[in-house]
Write a protein that binds this DNA or RNA. Sequence first.
DNA 1: CTTATGATTAGA
DNA 2: CTAATCATAAGA
Length: 204
Amino acid sequence: MTAAASPGSALELIDDRAWFDRPSAAVAPDLLGCVLLHASAEGTVAGRIVEVEAYQGPEDLAAHSSHGKTPRNAVMFGPPGHLYVYFIYGIHHCINVVCGPDTKPEAVLIRAVAVEDGTELARRRRGAVPDRRLASGPGNVARAFGIDRRLNGADLISGPVRLAFGPRPAEIAVKRRIGVDYAGAWAERPLRFVVAHDPHLSRR
DNA sequence: CTTATGATTAGA
DNA sequence: CTAATCATAAGA
């Protein structure tokens, strides 16, 4: 029995777009402990988000939106509560939650999830890896959940990928973002939020 | 059309 | 530490 599926702890889906209509640095820590779900034809995978990063609009030199709107990042410039999925390094997909306020191009990158439901399906998609690495690292989250570019722009309130409120983590740690050293001072900003001491983190 | 490169990962 | 691997964006 899992927290995501156990009777008596029904999932409370996030169905209010206003919840997403805030700066990414405000949404990001609130996302920790929340449940990410993907109901696909293959089955459903769900789990607790344990690591995220906030990307803050055009002024943030680490954000894709910092070089203007293009076909790839257009979803970031659209309404909050949608999925921004991009393909990177020729291999990996990364999934983001589009935030606000309004159409300000901010988003939260989901970097690690503790899979709690649909574990078998996630394992099939990922191959033989230890549980702690099943959805650890942004590319691995997308892989385990079966999410690719076809879901770019999907509505988190009406689409196959949803979010639900979960128990607030006991302790949240804030660190610098990973893989954005090129962004100068923006690389130093404390915009990576993690559930402290969680074994599923992509890094400590 | 050509070219450079990345919000990564796994493995030596 | 580096190779893998290709969509994307910018430039000629």
